[in-house]
Design a protein around this nucleic acid. Structure first.
Lengths: 203, 203
DNA sequence: GATATAAGTCGTCAATTGACGACAAGAAAT
DNA sequence: ATTTCTTGTCGTCAATTGACGACTTATATC
């Protein structure tokens, strides 16, 4: 098998392996899973840490789509539909079992695998999302950007946590995913106006 | 030092140790952290797994208060205040750094450390919470219990995910915690009615 | 066919791991 | 003072770990 192909195959196996067994999973079991001798791993990667880092780069950082930004701002569609469509896709492509487990293992290991980059992307996403919502609902957002982000997190966090319940806590979920997304989005859009009002009053 | 005291001290150290280093942290480092020889651990616990299990029992399962059920149902106070007070306390006592990290490490390890018990408690909590909210808002909940739970999860999941962002992702959070809780609760109460209506219409 | 180069494995090293037997120090009881 | 029991440590065992040198096998190039 060619160098590039073998490397890709190992990385693909590794992403599944580390997602299931944690970043501390032994290289011998990883090699076994890849159908390869343990020694061969070190022909492609200098250290085990390097394998983990490569998996992280490919699987975690590569899971975001630029298209989302454009779609969320397509005002020819109602905001509820735009957000719902986005989250159905987001759950399907990014908040998968593999992604969530890798991301949590990496975050827990405090390994400086900078979640800053991801935080930055998500923040941009949230900012677009809530600005579009505010525009269609005709409400004015507060000036404080940190506060705006937290408002958007009430929606984004709820859906992210649904993915955690599903993939990490292995909760038995009976309500179909599309209904759940619809609920979260509807609640958010219905409550956004009142929430902003309450925030202004409190000040 | 007496047997009981020493055991308690080891467990206390172990809970911090495993929370920070993961359930795979070595016994030698744990012993060192406890200021004790590694051998001594095995005078109190038959295996390392047993230490982890004991930590889990004490720290994870022991973090829930029966008082919450009573307080949430005290109709002499407005529901918004009841829920807000509950979540401020919940974040402070249960969704701590230590608790979250232990719980996530345990959940990821798929170890059958039955999260069923916790799921059961949380479900009861959510059912009380949303029933009280529906009562005060004078809206009727759907019959489907699974659906009711998911509705409550829009609030509970959002706040839980805030704790994850804070303690696991180490996000820099600028907005004070009390404001965040207030936002989530207000959004939920404002959106609950419309969300329920949308659910009925969809059917 | 000879030869070089790439693909891959075997066996091993030192370090680390969970676990435990053997022993030491101290207190309590007789 | 001797015995006995508790509290504790030292040193060690076998298994596992990441890493790598030495070797084999296949493929391609001349």
């Amino acid at each position: 098998m060619s160098h590039a192909d073998r490397r890709a195959q190992i990385l693909s196996t590794a992403s599944d392996f580390f997602a299931e067994n944690g970043l501390t999973g032994p290289t011998r079991r990883l090699a076994e899973a890849a159908g390869v001798s343990q020694r061969l791993l070190y022909r492609f990667f200098p250290t085990k840490e390097n394998i983990v880092a490569e998996v992280y780069r490919e699987e975690i950082l590569g899971a975001f789509k630029g298209k989302w930004f454009a779609d969320l701002q397509d005002r020819s569609l109602p905001i509820e539909q735009r957000i719902t469509t986005f989250y159905v896709d987001y759950l399907d492509t990014t908040l998968t079992r593999k992604w969530m487990r890798l991301f949590l293992y990496a975050s827990l290991a405090d390994s400086s695998m900078a979640p800053d980059y991801i935080a930055s992307i998500v923040t941009q996403l949230l900012e677009v999302l809530i600005k579009e919502a505010a525009a269609e609902l005709d409400v004015t957002l507060p000036d404080d950007r940190a506060m705006i982000h937290e408002m958007a997190w009430t929606l984004h966090g709820g859906i992210s946590h649904y993915a955690i319940r599903r993939h990490i806590y292995k909760a038995s979920l009976q309500v179909p995913e599309s209904s759940i997304v619809a609920m979260h989005v509807h609640l958010f859009l219905a409550g956004l106006g009142p929430m902003i009002e309450a925030c202004s009053d409190a000040r």
